[in-house]
């Protein structure tokens, strides 16, 4: 057994986290694993979920349906454990998630310009999560930076890594630059009042 294996107690504790999430987030996890590891990976993932005793069947997930937000954390943790992925891999999963998202494709009108996109992010968040909120941060086109703040969302540190990748991808959709970087400058798990991501580009 790997040393970072989650315990039943930890799972139980996670299941106490309130809030809901759209089914689409599980779909993107599923597609990513399928893409990276094929059916073998999916089988391994299913076995790991069974091992954990969690009811999560990716193939039956409905993308527009609301599911418990703790299931979102479990999905990422079980993937991380099943394939012994590090944070970088989880960040990459987050970065690829919008690529598989039908919802993202249908919400393209929100990504027309940087300013409009940032302005629309709270609404975009609301379509995915019932907990936490996005605060559009200041945009400095001269300095080529934008700040995204995620408030009231202290669920699990793995989501910090996931959203780092995810916000980077959204930035890549709306900022035309080949060199876009993202950095979590503030984290609620580090005692900050909110999560803050600083996006820079050249």
């Amino acid at each position: 057994m790997a040393k970072n294996q989650i315990t039943k107690e930890e799972i139980k504790k996670l299941m106490e986290i309130p809030g809901k999430v759209r089914g689409v987030v599980f779909k993107t996890d599923f597609e990513y694993v399928k893409e990276k590891l094929g059916n073998e990976g999916l089988t391994l993932l299913k076995e790991k979920i069974k091992e954990w005793g969690v009811s999560l069947d990716y193939e039956k997930i409905k993308i527009t349906e609301w599911y418990p937000v703790w299931l979102r954390i479990i999905s990422l943790l079980v993937i991380k454990e099943a394939f012994s992925w590090d944070d970088k891999k989880i960040e990459d999963l987050g970065n690829c998630a919008p690529k598989y998202s039908f919802v993202v494709a249908t919400l393209m009108r929100h990504f027309l310009s940087l300013e409009k996109s940032i302005k629309e992010t709270p609404k975009y968040w609301e379509k995915h999560y019932t907990v936490g909120e996005i605060e559009p941060g200041p945009i400095n086109e001269k300095e080529k930076l934008v700040v995204i703040r995620l408030k009231n969302f202290k669920l699990h540190p793995i989501l910090c890594v996931f959203f780092k990748g995810y916000f980077l991808r959204i930035s890549q959709y709306i900022i035309k630059s080949r060199k876009i970087t993202i950095e979590e400058t503030k984290c609620m798990f580090k005692g900050d009042p909110y999560h803050e991501y600083l996006v820079r580009w050249k």
Binding site: V104, M108, F111, L112, S113, Q172, Y173, I174, I175, K176
Partner: peptide, 10 residues
């Protein structure tokens, strides 16, 4: 499909 700035979306 592309985003408004020509990024491939799907």
């Amino acid at each position: 499909s592309l985003s408004g700035i020509g990024i491939i979306i799907s």
